[in-house]
C-alpha cells in the first residue's frame, strides 16, 4: 500500500505539487496520469524519499521510504532520470544494487534473463539502445522481487513485444496481491493495463478512482483525461 498525505513541494514560490493525497491499493494496477510538468515525477520522488516534501507525508507499507529495512525488497522503482553510470556494465550495475540490499548475486542474472538482457550483461550501458536501457531499469526494479512496483513510463522505448510483456507481467504481478503504481502519459496503454487511476494536473489531484468511474460520461479514458486536465491548465494542443 502506498499513501500520500497532503504532499506539497515548491520550487521557489511555485508549487510543483500542491496538497496531493491518494492511496494506492494492493492487488491492483494504479495508473498515475498527467501532462508533462503536472507533478508526476516530483510526487514519485517524494514517495521514494529522493526529494524532501515541503509539507505532508508519503508512506510505503506504513513507513517512510527511508525507514524501510530492506528498500529494494519492498519497492522496485523505475524512475525518469535514474539510471546507471553509462561506462558501467549492466551486470555490475545490478550486482552492486544486490549487494547493497543483501540480495543473492544470482538474482542479478535471473532478472537479466527475465528481461531478455542476458546476452548484453557484460556490455557497457552506454552501448545499450533506449529499449535495452529500459529493460535494465525494469530488471533493477525487479531485483528484490518487491511487494510494490513504482514505474515511470516503463514502456518508453520498448518494441511491441516488450510492451506486451510489460503489460502481461504487471497484470500477473498485481493479481498476486502486490501493488503497482504506473506513471504514464500514454492513455491507451494505461486504459489497457490499469484498474485504477490518479489524474494530476497543475500539481493537484483532479481525479482518483477506478478507471470506469473516471471514464464515466466520456468516450474514453483519453477524453476524460483531457476534460479533467483542461480545467487545471492542461494544454489543449501544440
Amino acid at each position: 500500500m502506498i499513501e500520500a498525505v497532503r504532499l506539497t513541494k515548491r520550487y521557489g514560490k511555485k508549487p510543483a505539487v500542491d496538497d496531493v493525497s491518494f492511496t494506492v491499493r494492493p492487488g491492483r494496477i494504479t495508473g498515475f496520469l498527467g501532462p508533462n510538468g503536472a507533478g508526476k515525477s516530483t510526487t514519485l520522488r517524494m514517495l521514494l524519499g529522493l526529494d524532501h516534501p515541503d509539507d505532508g507525508t508519503a508512506l510505503i507499507a506504513g513507513q517512510r521510504y527511508r525507514d524501510l529495512r530492506h528498500p529494494l525488497r519492498t519497492v522496485g522503482a523505475l524512475l525518469d532520470g535514474a539510471g546507471p553510470v553509462p561506462e558501467r556494465r549492466g551486470i555490475d550495475h545490478l550486482v552492486w544494487m544486490a549487494q547493497s540490499n543483501r540480495i543473492p548475486r544470482r538474482r542479478a542474472h535471473e532478472v537479466l534473463e527475465l528481461v531478455g538482457l542476458t546476452g548484453a550483461a557484460r556490455q557497457r550501458v552506454k552501448g545499450y539502445s533506449l529499449g535495452m536501457g529500459q529493460r535494465l531499469g525494469i530488471a533493477a526494479a525487479l531485483l528484490g522481487d518487491p511487494e510494490i512496483l513504482v514505474l515511470d513510463e516503463p514502456v518508453n522505448g520498448l518494441d511491441p513485444d516488450g510492451i506486451r510483456w510489460v503489460r502481461n507481467f504487471l497484470r500477473e504481478y498485481a493479481a498476486s496481491g502486490r501493488t503497482v503504481l504506473l506513471s504514464s502519459h500514454l492513455m491507451a496503454e494505461t486504459a489497457g493495463t490499469a484498474d485504477d487511476a490518479i489524474v494530476i494536473a497543475g500539481g493537484r489531484i483532479v481525479a482518483h478512482g477506478s478507471l470506469d468511474d473516471i471514464s464515466a460520461g466520456h468516450e474514453s479514458l483519453e477524453s476524460a483525461f483531457f476534460a479533467l486536465t483542461a480545467e487545471r491548465g492542461g494544454r489543449g494542443g501544440w
Binding site: R45, L48, G49, R66, P71, L72, L79, A82, P84
Partner: peptide
C-alpha cells in the same frame, strides 16, 4: 561526481535511502 552521471545518485538512494 560519477554519481551524478546518468542519474546514478537516484538509484543509489533508492537502494540506500538513509542518507
Amino acid at each position: 561526481g560519477g554519481e551524478y552521471r546518468g542519474g546514478q545518485v537516484r538509484v543509489s538512494l533508492l537502494a540506500v535511502p538513509d542518507r
